[in-house]
Amino acid sequence: MREISTQLVEETVCSLFLSACCEIGSDVLGLLNAALDREESPFGREVLRQLIENDELAARRRMPICQDTGMAVIFMEVGQDVHFTGGDINEAIETGVRRAYREGCFRASVLTPLGRVNTKDNTPAIVHTRIVPGDRVTLTAAPKGFGSENMSRLFMLTPSQGVQGVKDAVVEAVRLAGGNPCPPVVVGVGIGGTAEYAMLMAKHSLTRECGEPSPDPELAAMERELLERINCLGIGPQGLGGRTTALAVHIEQMHTHIAGLPVAVNMQCHAARHKTAVI
């Protein structure tokens, strides 16, 4: 049994969001630079240049990369030998988020869905918790903007549609999204499970280093194929036309039911923000 204070969790959540909203990862910056080298469209190149300049400026000035500092999504893996001390773990996470959004001058974008009443501190967070072996806690902060979130889709395919149906669904989701989700995008895909689990996998896949292939060779091959097909759509940076519609496709899979083939697509804009800490 290892004791971890909820105060430490709060501090960690706060510092992860402060960093994630202002400092784009070297993974994304590397992919943007590589895309700039390849992009043929003059508008596409201009947009990519602006994005790289913006990301560097944001990190230097500790400003948010994008004014949409998102809903605060957190993936938390808790070792089964951990005992949280010092208060309510859920409250600690909310306080960490609240502090980060206030201290960072991040936008308060969270409101009640029907009455549209803003909570003014960007809480509540969306927390996905998993119990794992060991005595550590892994926290990943992934602020999620809604320009791209709005373009996410769930396809409940039938088994007859098979692998080809899965591939076509993903490409179709990106095509229908067009210039809306702030391309170049990272396409998160969850295949199998249940309806809600497929989308959770799609979301979780976005916490992988951008462009790192799936450890599963079959999925890695599908990621490469889909990235190529998506970049033939012509949508391009910001939808103004070009070769760079997506920076990466990330896929996760899970067993499913004999009657089904769920495919979830969670769209992520080029501000693919995610920071992880292990306590």
Binding site: L51, E53, N54, A58, I65, Q238, A271
Partner: peptide
């Protein structure tokens, strides 16, 4: 069209 996600630059 302004560049989406270039919030710091536009500020």
């Amino acid at each position: 069209a302004a560049t989406g996600g270039a919030g710091a630059l536009i500020a």
